[in-house]
């Protein structure tokens, strides 16, 4: 069932697509995190802005990735922008909510203590609130990274130039369902997602060694 000859002949291509997969995901999470941090800080300062930001993010979430990629093709063409804009937008949904939740989770006594020590609002934010929000921020980065690695596979629908490992899934299917090639895309992309998840779990344990990593996290209800 597995065509070893094809695999041997495509080692370079698989390596190239793996690299592409990682950088497409890394750009999206990096840019998404920068934008989310700004949005979350604005929302934390001006509370009235949070409900609309959160609602907008929620609506965005209901739009299928395939639809966003398809819609953007007619605006930004077959470019890397078409691949990155939806990826970045989906990270915003996860990251903004987690950063705001992290900031909200700082106990009021801690804030009062910081004020009592003479911190300005800015000092309090950078020295007290953000450091205490780090565990939830990292939890958000974990979700965002893992889901982005999954979504990168779908960028292959824009054009053969993208898709990371998803390229092999689509190409293999279009060759009349060539299992070897489809597996060559599917299995490594799963491994990338699981690998990223594993690394973030380790990072979470390092950052908050006192807290047992919460096994189960319920979604907002």
């Amino acid at each position: 069932m597995i065509d070893w000859g094809w695999l041997a002949g495509h080692v370079d291509a698989i390596a190239y697509r793996t690299g592409q997969h990682l950088y497409l995901a890394a750009i999206a999470v990096g840019v998404g995190f920068a934008i989310s941090l700004v949005l979350a800080l604005v929302a934390a300062r001006r509370r009235v802005l949070y409900p609309p930001i959160s609602a907008l993010a929620g609506i965005l979430y209901t739009i299928p990735s395939l639809a966003l990629f398809a819609a953007l093709i007619s605006i930004t063409g077959f470019s890397v922008v078409t691949a990155e804009v939806p990826l970045v937008m989906y990270t915003l949904v996860i990251l903004v909510r987690n950063i705001v939740a992290g900031l909200d989770g700082v106990p009021a006594e801690v804030l009062e203590a910081a004020d009592g020590m003479g911190h300005t609002r800015r000092q309090r934010l950078w020295r007290v609130e953000l450091p205490l929000a780090v565990p939830l921020i990292v939890a958000g980065l974990r979700l965002a990274t893992v889901s982005t690695i999954g979504l990168v596979t779908i960028t292959g629908t824009i054009s053969d130039a993208f898709g990371g490992l998803g390229y092999f899934i689509l190409d293999g299917y279009h060759r009349g369902g060539f299992p070897t090639e489809m597996y060559a895309g599917a299995l490594p992309s799963i491994l990338l997602a699981l690998g990223a998840d594993f690394l973030f779990v380790r990072a979470q344990r390092r950052i908050t060694p006192w807290a047992q990593t919460r096994a189960l996290e319920a979604t907002a209800s």
Partner: peptide
């Protein structure tokens, strides 16, 4: 973990 966790991936 606020919000729906994993989207259409």
């Amino acid at each position: 973990a606020p919000g729906p966790p994993v989207l259409g991936a």
